[in-house]
Computed example of a mutant assay.
Amino acid sequence: MRTPVSSGSPTPLQQRSFRFLLIATVGGFSGYALLLPVVPLWAVAGGAGEVAAGATNAVFMLVTVLTQVLMPWLLKRVDCRALFALGTLLIGAPTPLFALSTDMWVLLGVSALRGVGFGILTVTGSALTAELVPIAQRGRAAAYYGLAIGLPNVALLPAGVWLSSRIGFGPLFWAAGAVPMLAALTALGVERVRLKDPKRAAPASTATLLPSWTIMAVNTAAAGGLTAFLPLAVDSSVAPAALLIFAAATMLGRWLAGHLGDRFGQRGVLAPSALLGGLGVLLLALAAWTADPVALAGAAVFGAGFGAVQNTTLILMLERVDSATASTAWNIAYDGGHGLGAIGFGVLIASTGYPTTFAITGALLLACRVLAARRWA
């Protein structure tokens, strides 16, 4: 149920602990974003093939999801702030070890260690966002948290590749390790949070998460597939701008959804958000078929819808179960959906081509709009 916000209540940004959480989140995700495209390049520079190079990120994401599965158990036993700091530290501390060797066992081992850290960081960050602010302000808090995640991705994903060619891999690995380690110290400014026992805090069954979880997973799978294959589906002169617009629109959509959701209720925002996502992907299907410039409009519309879906599904999950369970389920939908989307798109594209694959995806997202309109979403 939506709870009115008192005019005297401090906003999320006026709360000291939440500000420290945002600063630490930017640092932690900077270490992630800088190296996501760089580690495969380092593997190729050492003589690895494309499949082996891709395995570095695949292992990273696999370990991330496996760690996330264990987080509800861990959060019942350990202070959430301490786990957040540990996750941020594990993103950074092993990173300079990449510079020691391009042997695959080194690259995969370090990637796995960092995956543990990223799994901890993502779940505890979402949980702290929910716990540090009043319930009626969770939408806005999640929106600001989304900005803290999104800005490093927009700025540093392309910057990592550029820096590797300018300063070299070794210095970049040290820099990408130092930033999250400093962020782990910043996390000490966040107040201690011990999450409530889920059995006492949320009697509702986790099955009630399924509609929102499904909407989030389908939208994330679409985002994962489209970001992987859009550069191949449209003209190379259009693709970079489309991806940049998508990233920016995602942040804007999440920010707007957070404010609108707190004011009008999350369910009233979710259905239009899912509709926007479906329409945006259908525009991308049109761009892949004949009209490349339409990709810019499609990327903007899909990005806005995807960002809004991210925020609203997280808050709806938090309304149903405890923070640890909701954060874990949402992050698994996000990270697992990205990987499954890239694989699923590859299979569909091989058999039907880009326009048809994008059109099928758009239809699935429009079906999510129907699901979102139901009360049980």
Rank of each mutant, 00 (worst) to 15 (best):
T352F: 15
R320M: 10
R140N: 08
F60A: 02
G150S: 12
A201S: 14
A233R: 01
L128W: 01
I349E: 02
R77S: 11
C80L: 14
V238D: 00
A142C: 00
A55L: 15
A239H: 07
A43W: 00
A187P: 05
H259F: 13
S9K: 11
A178R: 03
V110A: 09
V190N: 02
P180I: 07
V116Y: 05
I343Q: 00
A300L: 13
V301S: 05
G307L: 06
F306G: 04
F169S: 09
G337D: 02
A241M: 13
R254S: 05
V78R: 11
G87A: 08
M1R: 13
L260F: 13
A184L: 10
A183P: 05
G109Q: 04
P94M: 08
A207L: 14
A324K: 01
G258Y: 01
F60Y: 14
G119L: 04
R200E: 15
P231R: 09
L364R: 05
R267E: 12
G54N: 08
F229Q: 00
A43I: 05
R263S: 08
V63Y: 00
A155F: 12
L210V: 15
A287W: 02
I135P: 05
A187I: 10
A85D: 08
A377C: 10
R2W: 03
I167W: 08
P40V: 06
D292C: 06
G337R: 03
S212E: 04
L365V: 09
A24M: 06
T186F: 13
V218R: 03
M251S: 01
Y144I: 03
A308C: 10
L232Q: 14
P37E: 04
N57Q: 13
K76L: 12
V269N: 00
V218P: 04
G261M: 01
G177T: 06
R369C: 15
A204P: 06
I120P: 03
F169K: 07
P40S: 11
F20V: 06
G47V: 09
A363R: 07
R16M: 10
P94R: 07
V123K: 01
I360N: 03
P211E: 08
T122I: 10
S236Y: 08
T56S: 11
P231M: 10
A367T: 11
A377L: 07
L62G: 12
M317V: 02
M61R: 10
A24D: 04
T312C: 11
I91E: 09
L270R: 05
D235I: 01
I245R: 02
A291T: 14
T124H: 05
G168W: 11
A271Y: 02
L34K: 08
S273N: 05
S165L: 13
V234F: 00
S101V: 09
L188R: 15
R200N: 11
G344M: 08
G339A: 12
K76C: 12
R2S: 14
E131C: 11
T88R: 06
G253H: 02
R81G: 04
L62E: 07
S351G: 11
M317E: 10
A233W: 00
L286P: 01
I343D: 00
V116E: 02
G258Q: 03
L314Y: 10
S7V: 13
R114Y: 03
I215P: 00
